[in-house]
Design a binder for these strands. Structure first.
Lengths: 229, 229
DNA sequence: GTCTATATCTCGATAGAC
DNA sequence: GTCTATCGAGATATAGAC
């Protein structure tokens, strides 16, 4: 927008490659920011540290994102999109066992593949979620309400135990996100440096089985319980 | 120790009242620090903010506790003592249902009564637990190992479903601490300003029932499930 | 667009009057 | 023991050369 008057010959770059560099730099900054915000939250993070992780001068961060708060907002927004995606395994017509197991597997996969996103989110909630009021009170609440109606339907049909679906979601989130947010505790108890693929599969299968039993759904005995069967 | 030479008449205070003041001030500072550390973690907290919450000049904090890290360490130590106490409902000779239900109730009560302690702990884990290495790798690990052996015994005796006790603990911690750490999310979904006593009792009963089913333990139908029956 | 140099502010910590 | 005043370090943010 603002660079329509720029002479791209001066920098030796075409419009497309200039756009590419911008995109690459923004991505690098966002990834570095996610890592730093994940460890120390918004208040504890410093622009100098983010710049160092990104391998760019500190001034570039301000050039691309303005203030620390705006950079944080950008990181959070990206995470929220990811957050709302993976949760769509619960539908009216689904088999409860498959739907709930799929939901747990998706959440565990997320803890495994995007632990930093989970940690940024956790830090934001711990500090009272000042940047997430709208998300929590509108988007998340409505989504939980909609999914809870489906689960209530399953309960009414006698396909699972009677429980409050909203508390079920709180428990599912707690059980699965703990593997990302508090991984250091889990690694210490399990006495491993990092969780292996096999350990992740076993954790996933433990949570899936526990949840299905907790919901009063008998697991099919011949069904593979690991993440990759 | 160091004030044996002080003239207590000059300040108009006896030794006992001077000790009392010291204890009161230290308590006020520790409580204020817990609140601030809970919201923003060690890196994000400022001594000025803690001093403001405590209602004392910033210099007094340094007088009583030295550095910010030492104050943080003092807060953490108090929390760990609390942490290791309430978890002792799991014994060899216990009834598995009673023991596990009691454990969950104790953890939920802790989330309810000391949410700030839980949050400080969560922040510390999120930032990689630099102050808790010994606790996690020695004390917590050994405790989990001991309790896991008891639970493994119950499983071998056919008194509950076969599962990995360590992952059971991870899930229990996640399920119960989420009610303290991520309370803002729970309040948003439930559309309440604060969780009432009744809401806490219901949450506790939901978690207890879910856990007992998840462990393959039939709940006695005539047993009250609320926190206060 | 990029990066150096720097302005401005706030932090942790302390000296010193009381 | 308490608190004001302040120092040096490090923070956010920007000006301006390139």
């Amino acid at each position: 927008m603002g660079d329509l008057m720029n002479n791209s010959a001066a920098s030796g770059l075409t419009d497309t490659s200039r756009g590419r560099i911008r995109r690459e730099n923004e991505t690098r900054i966002l990834e570095a920011a996610e890592r730093v915000f994940a460890d120390t939250g918004l208040a504890g993070a410093t622009m100098a540290q983010i710049a160092q992780v990104a391998g760019l001068p500190k001034a570039n961060l301000h050039y691309y994102f303005g203030t620390k708060e705006q950079l944080y907002q950008a990181v959070l927004t990206g995470i929220l999109e990811l957050w709302l995606d993976a949760t769509d395994t619960i539908h009216q017509e689904s088999d409860p066992a498959e739907a709930l197991a799929g939901y747990v597997r998706a959440k565990m996969l997320h803890s495994r593949q995007r632990p930093l996103a989970s940690k940024v989110f956790a830090n934001e909630l711990l500090s009272g979620a000042p940047f997430l009021t709208h998300y929590l009170e509108i988007e998340l609440r409505q989504r939980v309400e909609a999914k809870s109606r489906i689960i209530a339907g399953w309960i009414a049909d006698g396909r699972m135990t009677s429980l409050d679906p909203r508390h079920l979601f709180f428990m599912l989130w707690g059980m699965t996100q703990t593997y990302a947010d508090f991984a250091v505790q889990i690694r210490a108890v399990l006495e491993v440096e990092t969780l292996s693929d096999a350990a992740w599969d076993e954790a996933t299968s433990e949570v899936v089985d526990f949840v299905l039993r907790g919901c009063g759904i008998r697991t099919a005995p011949n069904q593979p319980s690991g993440l990759v069967s």
